[in-house]
């Protein structure tokens, strides 16, 4: 055991682990940030299953409208009802005109206002004796897998893998070079493959945390389904992690200062945060841009991950993503190694 630990690759990997674990911020970004992001966005975009609309009505009408279960009716006089509508407290204000007709006040650009109007109208007509000529029945289907939170969780897993790999490697490599420690290390018999290999091994050690925590959290807290195999999800994430590690090596291959590498990182990461479909579907961008967006590293990872996790597809269905990610891994690693500034 001691013999094994004294292997240079083991010692270099231990350096990676120690530098990470002794940096509290790094742990926050890797472990807690994805959860905070999922909770925050999940809460903001969660559906309200009891979709009750708040409306105001004059007292006599309010009695009638209370028969409608989907409306939360407040009895107010006409002017108070209009105030409530204007300040957004209610979606609709209903009042009885002197001639017996009913006036609905609402904003027709607000879907809630239009829905409230339909519901209120139906309740008033039925109370007055209308019988619907056609019987209808509701068949409620609330399908996990098609909600925003379901879309979001694989996205959070993807940006976690991307950010941690690119930032983790890029910063550490450039910081080591800036300290002239890279030069000191290559003045020893250390193998350069061991040096870069230690970064990859540490990424592999860390990636179950990055992947398992957000997926399990999503499943427990929001019921996000895991339909495909965990093994395939793990393999895709591992491939993604290696691909982004290679990109991190490329990003850090030349820069001498933290400022320089930060700029390059933002240039690489920011466009993918926006266009690769982390928070909303990449389909929203123009058709002309789709061929490019489709082959970006993060888009590939997210498309494959969502297909496997949410739709339960197997490997043959994501062969395109796997092939192009492998291409990215090999080319960026080769170029990064070629460009790497050791001195």
């Amino acid at each position: 055991m001691t013999k094994l630990l004294d292997h240079p690759l083991a010692q270099l990997t231990l350096v990676r682990a120690r530098e990470f674990l002794r940096e509290p911020e790094a742990i926050f970004w890797a472990v807690f940030f994805p959860i905070v992001l999922s909770v925050g966005l999940g809460l903001a975009f969660r559906e309200r299953p009891e979709a009750v609309l708040r409306i105001a009505a004059t007292p006599e009408l309010a009695e009638v409208l209370r028969s409608e279960a989907h409306l939360d009716v407040t009895a107010l006089d006409a002017s108070a009802a209009r105030d409530a509508l204007r300040t957004g407290k209610v979606a609709l204000a209903a009042e009885r005109n002197p001639d017996g007709t009913v006036a609905f006040r609402f904003d027709d650009t607000n879907p809630e206002g239009r829905t409230a109007r339909s519901l209120a109208d139906r309740a008033i007509q039925r109370a007055a004796g209308r019988v619907d000529p056609v019987k209808t029945a509701d068949d409620i289907a609330r399908e996990p897998g098609a909600r925003y939170i379901d879309f979001l969780v694989p996205g959070v897993v993807g940006i976690g893998i991307m950010s941690n790999a690119v930032w983790g490697l890029g910063f550490s490599i450039v910081d080591t070079r800036r300290r002239k420690l890279t030069k000191r290390l290559i003045a020893t018999p250390m193998s350069r493959a061991h040096y870069l290999g230690s970064y990859l091994i540490w990424r592999i050690a860390l990636f179950p945390i990055e992947v398992v925590i957000p997926i399990v959290f999503g499943a427990l807290a929001f019921g996000v389904p895991v339909r495909g195999s965990w093994f395939l999800i793990g393999a895709l994430c591992l491939l993604g992690s290696m691909m982004f590690s290679a990109i991190g090596i490329l990003v850090g291959s030349r820069a001498r200062t933290i400022e320089a590498v930060s700029g390059i990182m933002n240039l690489v990461i920011m466009p993918m945060w926006i266009v690769s479909g982390v928070f909303f579907s990449a389909q929203r961008f123009p058709d002309l841009a789709q061929p490019i967006i489709k082959v970006l590293p993060l888009t590939l990872l997210l498309d494959a991950l969502r297909a496997v996790q949410l739709q339960g597809v197997s490997l043959p269905s994501v062969w395109f993503e796997v092939a192009v990610m492998t291409f990215w891994l090999l080319t960026t690693f080769t170029v990064g190694l070629r460009l790497f500034r050791w001195k």
Partner: peptide, 20 residues
């Protein structure tokens, strides 16, 4: 040369020793 601030003396030496 600035050796890694977060490593201890003995960890640093064990790393360098592993190369020889």
């Amino acid at each position: 040369t600035q050796l890694s601030d977060k490593l201890t003396v003995v960890e640093t030496l064990r790393l360098f020793r592993s190369f020889y």
